[in-house]
Amino acid sequence: MKLAPRIVLQLPLGNPDALGPFVEDCLRHGVVLIAVVGENAAAVEDLIDDFVIGDGSDRSRFIVTTQHEGETLEDVMEFAATFNARSEARTALACAACIGPKTSPF
């Protein structure tokens, strides 16, 4: 299944170990935005950035990330909807409520 180009990731993460593979899927599918909403959003955004950057040798690995701690899911969905990606002006949104079983401290 192809991922939407703009993702709103709602915390808490169900399985933090699934975050790395999720980010790799986002890179493969051309996701241009991951907006993280919820408690500890800044920490999760930093983890996503680390996965995207890797060792820094592949400059084609790029996703815009934003953190929205203290904001409502609705506000972040609106932000993502108005985010102007390089390709399309209007694209589908995806809201990943959790990744895997709820065992995360995030």
Rank of each mutant, 00 (worst) to 15 (best):
L9T: 00
A97W: 14
A4K: 05
S87V: 00
L47D: 13
E39V: 07
I53Y: 14
G56A: 04
G20Q: 08
R28F: 04
L9W: 03
I7M: 05
V23K: 05
P105E: 10
A43G: 13
N84D: 12
N84W: 09
G70L: 04
T72R: 00
A35K: 07
V52N: 11
L47M: 11
E39W: 02
L19F: 11
E39P: 10
T82V: 11
D46S: 15
G14D: 10
I7F: 03
V64T: 15
A4V: 09
V31L: 08
L27K: 03
N15I: 04
S104G: 06
E71R: 11
N40Q: 14
V44L: 01
K102W: 09
V23F: 01
G100P: 06
V44G: 00
F106S: 07
L93A: 01
D49A: 13
A42L: 06
D49K: 13
F62D: 11
L19A: 09
A35L: 10
D58R: 08
E74G: 02
L9C: 02
D58C: 03
G100M: 04
T91R: 04
T65L: 07
L19Y: 04
T82K: 12
A89V: 14
V52P: 06
V76K: 04
L3E: 00
P5C: 01
V36I: 13
G20A: 14
R59Q: 12
F62C: 08
A41K: 01
V52S: 06
L93S: 00
F22N: 01
I48E: 03
L13Y: 02
F83E: 08
T65Q: 07
G20T: 08
I99S: 07
I99R: 05
E78T: 13
P16D: 01
A35P: 10
R59H: 07
P16W: 02
